[in-house]
């Protein structure tokens, strides 16, 4: 992928992410036997928030919300521009850092709890993503995203267990049930995003759409050069994680970290080592 394509894709990622979010709300409603909002609902929210009077705690906090959007955008560009996969993963950490520092910078109990849990989310899923980068390198022979996308191998066939692990940790990265401890609307009312309002909340709200693209693109990589399979994988994982979101209750953060560390990571390692042993 050339820089220009990546740049344009990053720019329109906001629109695509909005559609994905709209679709998600419909799918979720249908699964619950409801009609659900229109597809364009996220954009209605977007324009409405534009028009609200903004109230903030202090400027540093509000600015960090805006930076979260820009940081996420930049992280997505790093991923799409075809560079190193590991670097792209760590850029994602960087973008979350803004949300976390913003969440910590106010004296709001919910915000501080949420920011801390946000970090614990990171503790849970980050090792898995690093492992899958190493696994993709093992199969395709390159860390470059562009290389993986043009690879002749299909990593999915070599890494089924790892794919299952990544699929099951998808709710953690997108903060959906059962791993939505950081957001937990019924409990801490959105966590680090609670003190944002108006235009500043808009930044945080849309940054989450971009995270959708980020996560699903990661799923897409598991198909290697086989882009049709990749699209199927993305669609499947989209429905799967919506189903998971609907049928599960929230676990607490210890259970979340324990599930990732004691079940998903060993699953990934078993897959990785078996393939490596088979190849050597």
């Amino acid at each position: 992928m050339s820089y220009w394509e990546a740049f344009i894709l990053t720019l329109i990622s906001l629109v695509i992410g909005g559609f994905i979010y709209g679709l998600e709300r419909i799918v979720r409603a249908r699964m619950q036997g409801r009609v659900g909002p229109p597809l364009l609902q996220p954009f209605y929210d977007f324009f409405k928030l534009m028009d609200k009077r903004s109230i903030i705690i202090h400027s540093f906090h509000a600015f960090m919300g805006v930076m979260y959007l820009i940081g996420t955008w930049f992280a997505l560009f790093v991923l799409l521009s075809g560079g190193d996969l590991l670097i792209a993963i760590f850029f994602h950490v960087l973008s979350l850092a803004f949300l976390v520092v913003g969440g910590f910078s106010v004296r709001s109990p919910y915000s501080v709890i949420g920011a801390m849990r946000e970090l614990l989310h990171m503790v849970a899923y980050e090792p898995l993503y690093v492992l899958s980068a190493a696994a993709l390198y093992l199969v395709t022979g390159t860390f470059q995203v562009s290389g993986i996308l043009h690879s002749n191998h299909t990593p999915l066939f070599y890494l089924p267990l790892l794919f299952v692990a990544v699929l099951l940790s998808l709710p953690a990265i997108l903060k959906k049930s059962p791993f939505d401890t950081a957001e937990a609307h019924q409990e801490i009312i959105g966590g680090p995003e609670i003190e944002y309002s108006g235009k500043f909340y808009e930044a945080v709200y849309t940054a989450k759409w971009i995270e959708y693209i980020y996560a699903f693109f990661f799923i897409f990589l598991f198909a290697g050069g086989n882009h049709i399979l990749g699209a199927l994988l993305v669609i499947f994982s989209f429905f799967f994680f919506n189903l998971l979101d609907n049928v599960t209750a929230r676990v607490n953060f210890r259970q979340m970290v324990a599930f990732h560390w004691y079940i998903l990571i060993p699953l990934a390692v078993i897959n990785l080592m078996l393939i490596a042993l088979w190849r050597s």
Binding site: V101, F104, S105, R107, L119, M122, V123
Partner: peptide, 14 residues
């Protein structure tokens, strides 16, 4: 990272 951001968060609270 968790450790450091915990400390940074406490320092930058206003």
């Amino acid at each position: 990272a968790l450790l450091y951001f915990k400390v940074i968060g406490i320092m930058t609270r206003k």
